[in-house]
């Protein structure tokens, strides 16, 4: 069982790798501009956070669109990873009128996918200047906050999941549970 962490340059990419290791899964960090088809043994992909802006620095996200087009295994997008997923599947992204940093309360509703067990309100750790406005309707939005409409979304059909916040830091409640549920999806 191996889950790859695709590095978009986030300062917590190393933590995403560490959480997977701690949950007993083999993991490896790979750059986002490699040829993903060469990786044959991936049971799941985590698309890391990163500093590039989704609004004008897409080239810095390398070839991750190839994963979203061709993969048959689950994908978990975090922060800019999630924003890119939204954009890739014809959603809208923009610079946040009110960016969110650090401790933030988010609401969860019609929970599903890896978010099935998440309570209706939790504290998470944010670190974003851009945000998702909308996403195609084969995804379900299941979380928002006062200043940001899309904090989490999922598609059971595609087994793809995205979060604007950072489940890999311990300040985010239920972050490890989200990774655990994602691993279950990768096991199927």
């Amino acid at each position: 069982m191996k889950i790859y962490v695709v590095d978009n340059g986030g300062q917590w990419t190393h933590k995403e790798w560490k959480v997977l290791k701690k949950l007993g899964v083999d993991s490896e960090i790979v750059d986002n501009d490699i040829n993903f088809e060469e990786i044959k043994d991936s049971d799941g992909w985590v698309l890391s956070g990163g500093a590039p802006s989704i609004t004008n620095e897409i080239p810095k996200l390398g070839r991750i669109s190839e994963i979203l087009d061709k993969t048959s295994v689950p994908v978990f997008g975090i922060c800019i990873g999630a924003q890119f997923m939204a954009l890739h599947f014809k959603g809208e992204v923009r610079a946040s009128p009110i960016p969110e940093f650090g401790k933030t309360k988010v609401n969860f509703f019609n929970q599903g996918g890896i978010f099935k067990e998440i309570p209706s309100e939790i504290v998470v750790w944010e670190n974003h200047n851009d945000e998702i406005l909308s996403i195609s309707d084969d995804f379900k939005i299941c979380s928002n906050s006062k200043n940001c409409k899309v904090q989490a979304f999922y598609s059971d059909k595609k087994s793809m999941f995205g979060v604007q916040f950072h489940p890999e830091v311990e300040n985010t409640q239920y972050g490890t549970e989200m990774f655990k549920s994602f691993i279950e999806y990768c096991r199927r």
Partner: peptide, 16 residues
Amino acid sequence: IAPDWIESGGKNRDTI
């Protein structure tokens, strides 16, 4: 240790 080389800015990382 790990956090040092993260914050030092690598290929994609912003030099915090």
